[in-house]
Design a binder for these strands. Sequence first.
DNA 1: TCTGGGGTCCTAGGACCC
DNA 2: TCTGGGGTCCTAGGACCC
Length: 401
Amino acid sequence: LKSIIHIDFNSYFATIEQQANPRLRGKPIGVTGGDRDSRTVLGAASVEAKKLGVRTGMNLYDAKKVCPQIILVRGDSDKYLECTKRFLNILKNYSPYLEIFSIDEVFMEVESDPLKIALEIKDHIRKKVGEWVTVSIGISYNKRMSKLASALYKPDGLVWIQDPMAAQWILDRTELDEICGIGHRIKQRLINMGIHDFKSLRASPLSSLLSSFKSYGQILYDMARGEDKSPIVPFWEKPEIKSVGHRHTLNENTQELLKIKQVFYKLTELIARRLRSKKMVGKTVSLWTRDQNFEGIGGQTTIKPTDDGLEIYKAAFELFNNFWRRQPIRMIGISVSNLKPSKPFNLTFLEDELRQQKIIQTLDKVNDRFGEFTLKRGVLIGSQKVIRKANPFLSDRRFKI
DNA sequence: TCTGGGGTCCTAGGACCC
DNA sequence: TCTGGGGTCCTAGGACCC
């Protein structure tokens, strides 16, 4: 009987820093996103900091207010990505059906003995990495419930929700927005409908959920019953990235054209550089800004597919000019979507040759991405069938997280 | 709670083409 | 005259995740 295991690294960035630096161990630390003196928030807080009231996502001012002794560490996303690769290298020993959900979360499908596997994984990480990096593991019969299970006990938790009956018992003791898929907006709309918990959500007829939430009504209906049909999407079937964007919150709100243009320039150059490194061009340019009241306004436009920063800059700035009335700007975000490879594939009509070529490209991509987390043909995946499923031409899916 | 930065997916209406 | 139906692209906006 198949089980889904959800592995969640506790206070990920913070525990990595503590593992790396003994002086930080046992201390309340916070990992910052960007410049320390700008308007930034914590990307992670250690358990010690959390005990004192610090939360992930808190701004530095509040974090210092509740915890004056907090030690702030400048985050290093490359380092964390590298760590994640090493963890994946460990996890792939237990099942190839790994879905990388985010930098610190993984779903895994296993055929049997999920409890044994979960304990082994914890042990393995402890021995190979150290005491400070811990995981909370949730086991269940689908993704959503395994994710809920892993959230129930932190840090270093292990919870198994065995069947829909157990799931409903848990759900009836869970806040609506604690489950993956209900944020504060949908929660509020549910409350406005008189639905305050999963018990009353379960009692709501499908028809009324569908009329209020369209297709998402079905998902809410399933959620209340502990059901979830979404499949594991293993890393080697993950679709290619669909957009590349950057945003920046200015240290101070500004109406100075020069400063604004500088941010536009910087963001668009960063985007263009990343597009070029991925050998992609994009044709939809989206702009999103916030003013001093945190109100958002933006737009999007279509241009000739490009990886040129200046072209993106021009399109984005024109969008900005359409609505800007010289009010102070707090945040500027730009992203490019509708991506495709900058050079078309060299098509051949010899089908066999084509397939061989694609398999090699596919393996290269996976290996480029994961480094030592290496795929070898036939070893990990096993069957030609699965590899063909991963063929970008056949399924329009490529390999990136 | 005064709110960073990187993404994904969905819906809906209008333009345009055949 | 006034006019169908299907498909795709584009823009806007909303919601979610970590």
